[in-house]
C-alpha cells in the first residue's frame, strides 16, 4: 500500500523533558492507524508534530511524498492535514453551520466583500453534519450544544475539507456509549481516500476501528502492527494492555 505519512527519527524535547524521542512511524494511505499508550507516552505531542503546531527538535516528517518538516501548520492544513483537539476549541458564539463554514471558506480565497451575501457551503458540509447527527442542530450556537455534540462537531469540522490525513486526538473522550458508537460508525464509513491517525484510550473503539496500531511508551514506539499482532505481543501486554485493558473496558462499559 502507498505510504502517506512518514516520520523518521522524530524528537521533541521540552526543556529537560523528552516528550517524543526518535520516533519512526509509517502510515499507509487508507489505513485507520491508532496510537495507544499510557498517559505521558507522547501521543498528543506526536500528533502535534505531524500537524505542525509543535516544531520538531530533530527528525523529519514526510507527507504525501513531500518533506514537510519545515512547513507551518496552516500550510500543512492546506496540503490536506485535518485535525481535532483534545480540548474542544470551537467558536462558542457562532452557530454550528458557521463553525463549519469557517473551515470551508479557506479552500477558496477568503472573500472580503459581503454583498451579494452568498454563504459558503457545500454538499460535503451537509454530509458531514448528517453523518455525525448534527444536521438538525445547524442553526444552534455552539455554546448551547452538549459536550458530546461539541466533540462530534469537532470531527465534522475536521472532515469537511476532505483532508487526506485526519488527525484525531481522543475523539471519543467524554462521549456516551451511544455517541461513541455513532462516531465509530462515521469514522468507518469515511472513504478510503481519507487516512485516519488517531489517539484513543477506549481500547474497544481502537480494536474495533484500527487497521494498524502503534504502541507508544515514554516517547518511543514500542511496537507497530495489526490489531491481532498487538494483542498478542507479549512486550505490549506487559507494558500496557495487561490489567489496564480490562480496567479500560470496564470504564468504557460503565
Amino acid at each position: 500500500m502507498n505510504e502517506l505519512l512518514r516520520c523518521q527519527g522524530l524528537s521533541r524535547t521540552f526543556g529537560a523533558v523528552r516528550a517524543v524521542c526518535d520516533v519512526d512511524l509509517s502510515v499507509s494511505a487508507g489505513s485507520r492507524h491508532a496510537l495507544i499508550g499510557p498517559n505521558g507516552a507522547g501521543k498528543t505531542t506526536l500528533l502535534r508534530l505531524i500537524g505542525g503546531s509543535v516544531a520538531a527538535t530533530s527528525g523529519r516528517v514526510w507527507f504525501g511524498g513531500a518533506d514537510v518538516t519545515a512547513w507551518s501548520q496552516p500550510r500543512r492544513a492546506q496540503a490536506g492535514v485535518g485535525q481535532t483537539f483534545q480540548h474542544s476549541t470551537l467558536f462558542p458564539t457562532l452557530s454550528v453551520a458557521q463553525n463549519v463554514s469557517l473551515a470551508l471558506q479557506r479552500s477558496r480565497a477568503t472573500p472580503w466583500w459581503p454583498l451579494p451575501r452568498k454563504p459558503i457551503w457545500s454538499a460535503q458540509a451537509d454530509e458531514s453534519l448528517r453523518a455525525l447527527g448534527l444536521a438538525e442542530h445547524a442553526h444552534r450556537p455552539v455554546r448551547s450544544l452538549s459536550y458530546g455534540e461539541c466533540r462530534r462537531l469537532e470531527v465534522a469540522v475536521a472532515m469537511v475539507r476532505r483532508p487526506s490525513l485526519l488527525l484525531l486526538d481522543e475523539p471519543a473522550a467524554g462521549m456516551s456509549a451511544a455517541e461513541s458508537v455513532l462516531l465509530t460508525r462515521t469514522l468507518r464509513a469515511l472513504p478510503m481516500e481519507v487516512t485516519v491517525l488517531f489517539v484513543e484510550h477506549d481500547l474497544d473503539l481502537v480494536f474495533d476501528l484500527a487497521t494498524r496500531i502503534s504502541v507508544l511508551h515514554l516517547g518511543t514506539v514500542l511496537a507497530t502492527g495489526t490489531p491481532s499482532q498487538i494483542r498478542e505481543n507479549p512486550m505490549v501486554q506487559q507494558a500496557y494492555l495487561g490489567s489496564q485493558a480490562k480496567e479500560q473496558r470496564h470504564v468504557a462499559r460503565a
Binding site: 500537524g51 507551518s72 496552516p74 500550510r75 483537539f85 467558536f91 457562532l94 472580503w112 475539507r161
Partner: peptide, 29 residues
Amino acid sequence: WSVSASPLGAALRGIRDNKTRMRALGYES
C-alpha cells in the same frame, strides 16, 4: 463594515478568539 461583515471578518474574529484552531484549519494567521 464591508470587511467586518464579510466571511473575511469572520476569519479575523476566529483568529482573535482562537489562533491555534484557525491555523489548524489552514489560515496563515
